[in-house]
Design a protein around this nucleic acid. Sequence first.
RNA 1: GCGGGCGUGGUGAAAUGGUAGACACAAGCGACUUAAAAUCGCUAGGGCAUAGCCCGUGCGGGUUCAAGUCCCGCCGCCCGCACCA
Length: 882
Amino acid sequence: MSRYEPSVIEPKWQQDWDDARVFEARRDPAKPKYYVLEMFPYPSGRIHMGHVRNYTMGDVVARTKAAQGYSVLHPMGWDAFGMPAENAAMERGGHPKDWTYSNIADMRAQMKPLGLSIDWSREFATCDPEYYGQQQSMFIDMMAAGLVYRKAAVVNWDPVDMTVLANEQVIDGRGWRSNALVERRELTQWFFKISDYSAELLSALDGLKDWPEKVRLMQANWIGKSRGIEVPFALTAPTHGLTELVCYSTRPDTLRGATFLAIAADHPLAKALSAADPAVDAFCGECRRLGTSEEAVETAEKLGLDTGLSVRHPIYPDQTVPVWIGNFVLMEYGTGAIYGCPAHDQRDLDFARKYDLDVVNAFTMPGDANKIGDDALVPAKDVTVDYDSHFTGLTLATGYDAIEASIDWMEARGLGTGQIRYRLRDWGISRQRYWGCPIPVVHCAACGVVPERKENLPIELPYDVSFDKPGNPLDRHPTWRDVACPTCGAAARRETDTMDTFVDSSWYYARFTAPHATTPTVAEDADYWMNVDQYIGGIEHAILHLLYSRFFARAMHKTCHLPLKAIEPFNALFTQGMVTHEIYKTTDANGRPVYHLPEDVRKFAINGNVVTVPKSRLADIGVDPDDPEVSQEVLDAITLVSDLQVEVIPSAKMSKSKKNVVDPMNIIAAFGADTARWFVMSDSPPERDVEWTASGAEATFKHLSRVWALCSRIGEMPLDHKGEGDDDLLRAMHRAIAEVTAGIEGFAFNKAIAKLYEFTNAIARASASTVVLKQTLRTLAQLMSPMTPHIAESIWKAQGGAGLCAQAPWPKADPAMLVDDTVTLPIQINGKRRAEISVPKDMPAAQVEKLALQNEDVIRFLAGQPVKKLIVVPGRIINVVV
RNA sequence: GCGGGCGUGGUGAAAUGGUAGACACAAGCGACUUAAAAUCGCUAGGGCAUAGCCCGUGCGGGUUCAAGUCCCGCCGCCCGCACCA
């Protein structure tokens, strides 16, 4: 072996793995299976360090499991539909399909040099007709199963781009691209009935033991279960065919204090009033124009309009309560009507004060804290209050008991009905976009909405479309749009909406088990490979993608595309942190920030401090930025010119605009894939952010070079060389096996790597026989191989390993070698460490006590004081209490 | 407002209630070199009266023979959700 040259060995070993088809996933009933999956990428065209970290984590797991004897499935694909492709077509010309497939080719070419143990024969893109055709087939099955429906829904409509926008795409009430004022328009849209599964999606979270608690909580909050009551309020005079207004409340214990009703602008009564009264219509229109963005919601003033109508208070029928229209009431939640109890709800109180409405207490607090000024009276959940004047006989803590008791009280009198409600709403999947999966239905004047015949699938996107006009090009493509009705054969129109791209990513994990089948899944394959044993991705998908996938797996089970065991498709989930980087910022003459790329700055150590300088400025003081030699005069000059230094902002998310990006391809070119892989796995725990540093990457490369040199040195030793340290080194080896394995299995890759450093240092320092040194190096290669598979193969081969390291069985630690014969026990006196003794590991406690008390440091510290208590924790510690 | 998480050296971080700071980065010193880089070796939480002692895991209490770890109360930072009735 000579120099460590990753650019030579990495392609070679990748070729050898390919030739031996090492990573092809095979159904093998004789082996346990393991399915490891990383969230598949959007083909933007470039991979970034976040991808490297994500896929390396999965690869470490996949390679370890394979070595441990599992039949491993580790696939890769592309989440390929979506707006960026259309935007690129609109901005630069070209076609979304060409843009996407060319990006996929580029990214695949960037990923292959990483040496990931991926079964590339299973690769697919969601924009392959072979994939989305199966998705269309399932859509039709889901229609038949009653999981799909159409309804009119209010959406964000961009009148310039003529498309629906997601809430995130509306900025300050304007379309993010067109800058046009967004309208709230009612459109007929396709929905999945995810709300049918609200209760189950919530309760099943408890079974997801290997998911982060945080993600389960976020999903639970999103589903948003609430216990409350529906209360009908009788109108004093029936109007527009209505005799009552039904309100929903989660605080039925406050009903006594109801002093007004507020309904949403989209409530049927509000609509009826609008039609008759221009003032009401104007007010409702204003409510609808209010944006749905968070800022809009936070800053909007609570506005109301008195309808002049009134209802009877359910408990006190002789009292009437006015009905208002409120801009803060949502039609989408509850019944679209609320009763306001200003005494015990801050928002209601603000509204009541503004419009001079009554404030009536629903309960009395102990003491004299019952006067209400500008703050609503909201007692803590464990404060006992008196409801007696309201619900006869109740004196309870507010909170769960009060809510249940008041529901019982009202149900018994027929005043309301207890209800469990969920915040989760049905999933609107219609997008007025070209680059997505066409919804496979046809609109026929005679037959209505008709699903396509399965034999006509896939309904492929037409290629001959233009993006020179706003709107959906499918709408103006007559030969694609105009078809015969699948039922009656009459002239009909194809649905031109496409599906939300979250649909595509809701079942790709299942498709990987049989990626080229002519049905969505194949029973034997799904049965063997499902579930995903380890899923790895970003926390940003904690809610939508994971919730949709959990719903879709249930829908696929209902339509016979997945076995029952797969309704929770991801057994274990790991959410990894980001790769961050320092930002290098200076300011130009106009005070504007200027950012510098990492490769365009240089760091100098001056008096123990690190000073960062843009390379462009070094020439100003006569320094060649790439000359490694740095004289004292130069360092002095750098400190003298005060505005030479950049401001360093640490640990920032990599972003092109801040120029703090590191291209993985540059790292691979400079140091090799093993260095990139090792670095992103070292230092920080995987769930936390890791900061990429040039010095860290160089240090990793140096370490791998040292391992290489160590391997060369041992390779040149005479084979019959003997050493006295064999036993110590073998013990170190078994400890390393145990600790590295535990680190990998516990997703503590940083600790596994720390142990590998220790093991390498132990080998380098050992005076052992050549035979044992070579044996430990082979083990080192195996333990490194999940992180740095290429250098591991080279070491494995150089030290006489048989076959490929990637196919060698994972080493096992001998428990007998993990315990040392003698142990060093610290001795504490009153809890402070004062001395230590070495004793044989199995020495009886009584003898250890005796030895401890004979220790001269102990005697000195005790200074004759009597020992009150002596604690010996075998193999751990001794504590002397005086 | 509701829910969750985190505070340990110059930095990233370790630590089944049992020797706080493993491992690494940055830094400093030394060796080699005409010199630099590279490489190798050493030092390194703070303080002091430096063979030693005292202090030290955001702050204040508590439990325990023993607390970074457990409990109570604060402070600070981060994340998620939110006109949700």
